[in-house]
């Protein structure tokens, strides 16, 4: 258990380097939300079952609710707050807005992150590839059809 205020490790989030004082065993999401005040990433289960807490690590979708922050030392993390830094990210955000791809919106951050990762890797995914990429993400309001339309819209640019 680290003493309060002492720097335990360094992580890079949305292009900025942060000295982290949270305990090294802290799951990444609590560091993002509570220490860095990046509250856009949502906790849905804390069990890596629902996808609400997805962030990008090295461009890939990673769930942030279980893995300790120390495992992310030295890696490039992008949260929903930083997703607009890339052209693909902006396209995905815009497509979600235009397709009104949310109802309550609790799943939205994770889905925007996942869609950005998908389209960065595969600019024109077929429906099966999109469904597979989004399958780890739950939405309880049933916005799935809109999210799929948004991904299609973002892919076609």
């Amino acid at each position: 258990m680290g003493a309060c205020g002492a720097v335990n490790l360094t992580i890079r989030v949305n292009g900025q380097t942060h000295q982290i004082t949270s305990d090294p065993d802290t799951p990444l999401i609590y560091v993002l939300r509570d220490e860095l005040q990046l509250k856009g990433t949502k906790l849905g289960c804390g069990l890596e079952q629902c996808g609400a807490c997805a962030v990008l690590v090295g461009g890939k979708t990673v769930l942030s609710c279980v893995s300790a922050v120390e495992t992310f030392e030295g890696q490039d993390i992008t949260t929903i707050e930083g997703i607009e830094a890339t052209e693909v990210g902006r396209r995905v955000q815009d497509a979600f807005v235009k397709a009104t791809a949310a109802q309550c919106g609790y799943c939205t951050a994770g889905l925007v992150v996942a869609a950005t990762a998908l389209l960065t890797e595969t600019p024109n995914p077929d429906r099966e590839a999109t469904l597979a990429a989004l399958a780890p993400h739950l939405c309880r309001c049933g916005s799935h059809p809109r999210v799929l339309r948004a991904v299609t819209r973002a892919a076609s640019g």
């Binding site: 509250k39 949502k42 707050e81 979600f96 919106g105």
Partner: peptide, 17 residues
């Protein structure tokens, strides 16, 4: 347009959490 949609996609929408 849905209220709050723009804030949802950039992470600035505030939930009680």
């Amino acid at each position: 347009g849905m209220r709050g949609m723009a804030e949802l996609v950039n992470g600035s929408f505030t939930f009680v959490h």
